[in-house]
Design a protein around this nucleic acid. Structure first.
Lengths: 223, 223
DNA sequence: GGTCAACAGATTGTTGACAACATGCCGACA
DNA sequence: TGTCGGCATGTTGTCAACAATCTGTTGACC
């Protein structure tokens, strides 16, 4: 102890403000605090987040590259991106492709333990459906897909997939929230894991692609 | 005419400094002016580019999200990213996936005129090979792939593909420069266009994937 | 009544200065 | 002689003020 620099939390990550702001703004956009089309006023946002315009601008520009905000050009301000139907459809296409690839990789590389963990998550989702716990299902669904990305061991694919999901959450309609949709979706999960356990890459790929395309159909149905 | 606001070039794009800097830095990184591992000193770079640190920092952070530079953490500076072999291999995998998808789309959607244009580019590349014009081949190869992306009409796939190519250019070995490699590569191009003209999406997809995987093999061979 | 031009206000773009932190060096001590 | 603690330097992080530009409004003129 003694004097010392007041060791107020070691803060090993000690990130600068801009990256923190990027994360916070991302969360505000994805949870609807900043809805699509919302104008992003630099001074107002800086005040709101307790910082100045410098770091805030850096964060905004990072989000621009990420596809969450768009700039209208010089002196014309930024706004939360509003996805058009075509763009959203394309996101599903790209995600389907990556999901298929991920499943094929898993069929080739996944450890038995990893497959068992995936299976457990599918069972847990079934339980959530039975209990009518739509929120729990939603979270576990994200976890399930996250676990697949981890197990596949392909960092680039995982990063691409995550960024696509982030973008698609810009207009997050909870199309999965209906019990029927949840049941369909989890049946697809089960089939995917089945193919992975059978070490059948081609079937796993097809089912992975179909799963996301199924999501696209459910989205189109609820449009 | 008359007075008017001096219409000194409409400058319709009138971009701000930061986006311009992003482009310029990107070019400097990709053409080797700023080699991988190079430390990016903010003040020095700002002076060199004739601006101040503010816009430069915004540009650097954008490039960070793009995967061209890495930050060592707060107060530790940025540097041009150095790709590890594994990362480079993963880039090939992801590109293969997208190229295959793109070819499948083309087999389904491409206009006859578009296909003819692709064919013309393949012929032009053959001519460049015959002439021993490696530089010309290199440029036309980029153009050929760019034309495929345009014709496929899938903006998201195109954007992903371009960003992957950009990253892979971080360590650009001209593996294609050998006449044998160029010949192999262009034979693959020809087969791809053939499958597209035949309106055979599955074959086109397979050949597209194989083409990039062929590039990966050629890269591994010259490692 | 409609259109165009000038103006006022507000917002973004840019800059330079100040503060906080990491790195490397030097000297003291075991 | 090797290692540790403190210090000096340089670099990044942050901020507030200034300049340039866009937008909406008002008024005049056709």
């Amino acid at each position: 102890m003694l004097p010392g620099p007041v060791e107020h939390a070691p803060d090993r990550l000690a990130r600068a403000l801009a990256p923190q702001l990027t994360t916070r703004l991302e969360a505000m956009i994805l949870d609807g605090t900043l809805p699509p089309g919302e104008r992003l006023h630099e001074q107002a946002l800086a005040d709101r987040l307790g910082t100045s315009r410098g770091p805030l601008r850096e964060a905004l520009r990072a989000l621009e590259r990420e596809g969450l905000v768009v700039s209208g050009g010089a002196h014309r301000g930024m706004a939360v991106r509003r996805l058009e139907a075509r763009e959203e459809a394309e996101l599903y296409d790209a995600r389907a492709l990556l999901q298929g690839f991920c499943c094929a990789l898993l069929a080739e590389r996944a450890t038995e333990d990893g497959i068992a963990a995936l299976q457990a998550r599918v069972d847990a989702m079934d339980a959530a459906i039975q209990a009518g716990d739509a929120n729990g299902y939603y979270r576990q669904n994200l976890d399930f897909h996250e676990a697949m990305l981890d197990l596949a061991g392909h960092a680039r694919t995982a990063a691409l997939y995550r960024s696509l999901v982030k973008e698609s959450l810009l207009t997050r309609r909870r199309t999965l929230a209906s019990p029927g949709n949840m049941r369909d979706s989890n049946a697809e999960h089960r089939a995917m894991v089945e193919a992975i356990r059978a070490r059948d890459p081609e079937t796993a790929r097809r089912l992975g692609e179909e799963h996301v395309k199924g999501g696209k159909r459910r989205w189109l149905g609820g449009l």
